[in-house]
């Protein structure tokens, strides 16, 4: 029982990361109807920027304080968002109206490029940083198994909650959120009503990248080790989360992320950690097979 509760906590913190990445997939899909294949790399870039900022702060003599956390968050979001913008500008915008396959291939090319760019500039070796803060909060003890939540895990949960709240506010309450939703429903009509569709799409990529940057920072906080390949698997898992939740649905992405995190934690704990990736992949195939619209998605009516 205690062990299971512990897995629940681990799964939820893991799921928070997937959920944050999944939102980027789902938003971009919602607005341009395409999967952003480079999104996993954007997350990886966010993680690298977090490490860089962390090391810089340490070099400047700033101890592991909330200030460092803020600096990581800020730098990582700013630069990753810029990368997200650049991906859209270079790999997607020139291809509006091109055959369907073209943007898919160009996004894959972008993903390959970014992965190798980071490998070449930052090296192929694993980057590891010491934990920002150690120790954990003992929650309770069940069946003599102490259930704990690490301070970093707690940080992850709190930051995710804050980011999600801010994000939800932006989508539902601000002008950008309204424009974003309008472009999702009907880009032509939105353009006629004076909405700058290009700008809205750019902003969508930027926000997706910013959330991925937060997720990247989470990965650094939780595991302390990253390398240039982490975007690949995380990308597939987050995409699975987006599909599971119903692609195009933002709450669905978060829900899907949490579910995938739970499945992974429990699978690793009770079955086999080696095959945890196989488990998520099977979920993707099963969802596509039996419920392609996902848990919260709307049916996709083919336009003829």
């Amino acid at each position: 029982m205690g062990y299971a509760l512990q897995q629940l906590i681990n799964g939820l913190t893991l799921g928070a990361t997937y959920g944050l990445i999944a939102i980027g997939y789902t938003m971009v899909y919602g607005i341009i109807g395409m999967i952003n294949f480079a999104h996993g790399e954007i997350y990886m870039i966010g993680a690298f920027l977090s490490v860089l900022t962390y090391v810089l702060c340490t070099a400047l003599g700033l101890g592991p304080t909330p200030l460092v956390l803020l600096a990581m968050l800020f730098v990582s979001i700013a630069f990753t968002a810029l990368y997200g913008w650049a991906v859209e500008r270079i790999a997607y915008r020139p291809l509006r109206g091109a055959p369907r396959l073209a943007p898919l291939i160009s996004a894959i090319g972008m993903s390959i490029f970014l992965q190798n760019y980071v490998q070449l500039t930052q090296g192929a070796r694993i980057k590891s940083v010491p934990p920002l803060w150690q120790g954990s909060l003992s929650l309770w003890s069940a069946d003599d198994f102490p259930v704990t939540i690490g301070w970093t895990q707690l940080t992850v949960v709190v930051v995710t909650l804050i980011v999600m709240t801010g994000f939800a506010w932006m989508i539902t309450r601000t002008a950008f959120g309204r424009q974003q939703r309008a472009c999702e429903q009907d880009p032509k009509m939105a353009a006629l009503l004076g909405i700058d569709v290009d700008r809205t799409i750019s902003l969508t990529f930027i926000i997706g990248a910013a959330l991925a940057a937060v997720a990247g920072m989470m990965a650094v906080l939780q595991y302390g080790v990253i390398d240039f390949t982490i975007g690949f698997i995380a990308g597939i898992k987050a995409f699975t989360a987006a599909v599971l939740g119903g692609i195009g649905s933002i709450p669905g992405a978060m829900l899907g992320g949490l579910l995938i995190g739970l499945v992974e934690a429990f699978w690793s704990a009770y079955l086999s950690p080696e095959y945890k990736d196989v488990a998520t992949f099977s979920i993707l195939v099963l969802v596509l097979l039996f419920r392609p619209t996902g848990l919260l998605g709307k049916p996709d009516v083919e336009k003829v």
Binding site: I105, I108, G109, I112, F113
Partner: peptide
């Protein structure tokens, strides 16, 4: 691979 990636984007 860096060049392949860039070439794929450019050619598209």
């Amino acid at each position: 691979m860096l060049v392949f990636g860039a070439a794929m984007v450019t050619i598209m």
